[in-house]
Design a protein around this nucleic acid. Structure first.
Lengths: 137, 137
DNA sequence: CTTATTCGTAAGCATGCGCCTATCATGTGC
DNA sequence: GCACATGATAGGCGCATGCTTACGAATAAG
């Protein structure tokens, strides 16, 4: 077999690289990583409870609140009490939130494509396919 | 194109999974992640300065010191002043350090192989190959 | 010889995060 | 109605980390 590092070491380093790559994009749009994660989760589908959202993006439930406050203040999300169960806050993207997420994600995807451009298409596809398989939701 | 998450999201989740996978192994050997990173770096080659080592594993120079203290106390590394430049401490694995690293790494590699076992060999190889290419040292 | 630089070490500070508890409002089951 | 569970929120605690400063020892440069 090849002489290589542990997967963990490489994955962590790649994570740091991707973070460094994404941060300027997020900064340019004045949005934090957590906020972007929230927009991403809500784009796939609106969520009934904040706890479910927190679990879905692997964040602490209490730490999410200021993020939601900020997103709501900027009118990127709607957060309204559920008429059927007024304990819960229904969360959904506003049109502006959807637009912002779309713009940020497009830039991130372009940067990702740049990163992967050096590899043969077959390897790229196998890489992404395996990554998807390794990270079930 | 497939509907997929951003690479960053998947890579970070995978990193967390790998961390959770490795922690019991490291705990069983009474060693921290940073200490394991140090042993790994020193196994590849001894290092002349602690600053170089810190940079090599992406750690803060000052934060490395207690880790080295601990490793030295357990006689897993040698840390002796360089006779040619007595400012620097020459770092190298002891035989016990080498043995410990080998044992831990073997367990980690086995766990990694388990993780990847579900994927076709071609995908596995392309995944690792691309990962190596994406994380140059 | 004097000054500047490098290396290792120690200490402090701010940040971000996970975790745990408490509180309040609301719903559900008995 | 009453006890219990659930959701959102706030606050505090502890830990790991990154970043900065300071200092002593040793070396390099002028």
């Amino acid at each position: 077999m090849e002489e290589r590092e542990d997967l963990g070491a490489m994955v962590f380093r790649l994570g740091r690289q991707l973070l460094a790559m994404e941060r300027p994009i997020l900064d340019r749009h004045g949005i934090s990583m957590w906020a972007y994660a929230v927009l991403t989760a809500l784009r796939e589908r609106p969520m009934r409870t904040q706890a479910a959202l927190a679990a879905g993006i692997g964040a602490d439930k209490t730490r999410l609140i200021p993020v939601l406050d900020e997103l709501q203040k900027r009118e990127l999300i709607d957060r309204e009490p559920d008429p059927d169960d007024r304990r819960v806050r229904l969360l959904a993207l506003t049109p502006a939130g959807r637009r912002l997420h779309q713009a940020v994600q497009a830039e991130i995807r372009a940067a990702e494509a740049d990163l992967l451009a050096a590899f043969p298409p077959g390897d790229r596809e196998a890489f992404v396919r395996t990554l998807i398989g390794l990270t079930p939701r």
